[in-house]
């Protein structure tokens, strides 16, 4: 498989999971956009373009998974805080369980016959 294909898979995977990572970050307390972006960036570049988190958050709000409030900021423009709803909390819990199974399965497969990159599969055909 060419490396580009693997990268594409990771990109798609990232897109699929970032929404639930955002929900997970809201489990402890409400957060505002830049706060979420900072956390996601520190977690290994889960966002490619930071600005796209706002459409994502709007979608979560439309789906009833988060609610929002505008709050004054002492240093600048008002910030919009996002908080998890009960549905959002349930969604994170479900995803967490599914992800654990998925991750274990993938790890098991990948962790099995791990071969060093330099060792090609030697066709040890002894037959002559």
């Amino acid at each position: 498989m060419e490396p580009g294909g693997a990268r594409n898979v990771i990109t798609q995977l990232r897109r699929g999971v970032v929404e639930h990572c955002v929900l997970a970050l809201l489990r402890d307390r409400p957060r505002y956009g830049f706060d979420l972006v900072r956390e996601l960036s520190e977690a290994g570049g889960l966002l490619t373009s930071e600005g796209t988190i706002y459409p994502l958050l709007a979608r979560l709000r439309r789906d009833g998974l988060v609610v929002t409030t505008w709050q004054e900021s002492e240093t600048g423009p008002p910030r919009r805080y996002y908080a998890l709803t009960d549905d959002g909390r349930a969604s994170v819990a479900t995803f967490g369980a599914e992800w654990a199974r998925f991750k274990d399965g993938v790890d098991r497969v990948l962790g099995g016959p791990v071969v060093a990159p330099t060792s090609p599969r030697a066709p040890e055909r002894s037959a002559g």
């Binding site: 897109r15 699929g16 999971v17 970032v18 929404e19 955002v22 966002l47 490619t48 373009s49 930071e50 600005g51 796209t52 988190i53 706002y54 459409p55 994502l56 709007a58 979608r59 439309r62």
Partner: peptide, 21 residues
């Protein structure tokens, strides 16, 4: 932040910027 077009495209018309789910 990314190109404004990318942000707007992620607004939900199917062209997902981050999470198309």
């Amino acid at each position: 932040l990314g190109p404004v077009e990318e942000i707007v495209a992620a607004e939900g018309t199917g062209a997902g910027g981050v999470g198309g789910a």
